[in-house]
Amino acid sequence: MTEEILVKQAIKGDEEAFLTLIHSYEEALYRTAISYLKNEGDALEAIQEVTYRAYRSIKTVKEPAYFKTWLIRIMMNYCRDVIKKSKREVFEERILNIQGITEDFTFLEVEEALLSLSDYERELLHLKYFEDVKIKDISVMWNTPEGTIKTRLHKALRALRAGFEEKGEVKRV
């Protein structure tokens, strides 16, 4: 059965179709949650909450072809709400070293660089590069022209690069 047929059935109230869809996107939901929340327990809780929210509002899906995008958007909004509520802070490498943890902290540098971007830029980069959502789909989801999305994506990447160049991490010729 195709995804669109499953989505249409789920919108009509078919619980099995809904569960099939959720299971097929479970990994994408987990990756999104872990990239925002940085904690496996919180990510698993986020998946449960987003599944509930999606089930509750499945009838609001306007275009079945964009179900995955709709679902990821719910996850991103939920994660942002959780972060705002808990006012989390990013640990610096020296704090982790004090605790005796010695690992490769490149991911922290990337996270720190991403935090220097606006929420909009972070979401755009996440959708495009972590969830592999097409620019066309992002433009439909955000009701923004494709050209504008491409321009904003280019600016976000340039800002991210500039953050690394300031630290001396990346030198582009």
Rank of each mutant, 00 (worst) to 15 (best):
M1Q: 14
M1F: 09
M1D: 14
M1T: 14
M1G: 15
T2L: 02
T2S: 13
T2V: 00
T2P: 07
E3I: 01
L6W: 12
A10N: 13
I11S: 12
K12M: 15
K12Q: 15
K12S: 15
G13E: 06
G13C: 02
D14M: 06
D14K: 05
F18C: 12
T20K: 15
L21Y: 09
L21Q: 11
S24R: 14
E26D: 10
E27P: 01
A28K: 12
L29C: 15
L29Y: 13
R31C: 02
T32N: 12
T32Q: 01
Y36F: 12
L37N: 06
N39T: 03
G41H: 15
G41V: 04
D42E: 11
L44Q: 14
E45G: 06
A46N: 11
I47P: 14
E49D: 14
T51M: 09
Y52F: 08
Y55A: 15
Y55N: 15
S57G: 05
S57R: 01
I58E: 04
T60N: 05
T60L: 07
V61Y: 03
K62T: 11
Y66W: 06
F67N: 15
F67T: 15
T69R: 00
T69W: 01
R73E: 04
R73F: 02
N77P: 03
Y78F: 12
R80L: 12
V82N: 03
I83K: 06
K84I: 06
K87E: 03
R88T: 13
F91V: 14
F91D: 07
E92V: 13
E93P: 06
R94K: 09
R94Y: 11
L96Y: 12
N97K: 10
I98G: 08
I101T: 11
T102L: 11
T102M: 03
T102D: 05
T102P: 03
E103Y: 13
F105L: 12
L108Y: 03
E109L: 14
V110H: 09
V110C: 09
E111W: 08
A113E: 10
L114R: 07
S116F: 00
S116I: 09
S116E: 15
D119Y: 13
Y120W: 09
E121P: 05
E123H: 01
H126A: 15
H126F: 07
H126E: 10
K128W: 00
E131P: 02
E131Y: 02
V133C: 00
K134V: 04
I135N: 00
K136G: 01
D137A: 08
D137G: 01
S139D: 03
S139N: 03
T144M: 13
P145G: 10
T148F: 15
R152E: 11
R152N: 07
L153Y: 09
L153I: 09
H154W: 13
H154F: 12
H154N: 07
A156P: 00
A156L: 03
A156K: 08
A159T: 10
L160C: 12
R161M: 01
A162E: 11
A162N: 13
G163K: 14
K167C: 03
G168W: 02
G168D: 02
E169F: 06
V173C: 04
V173H: 01
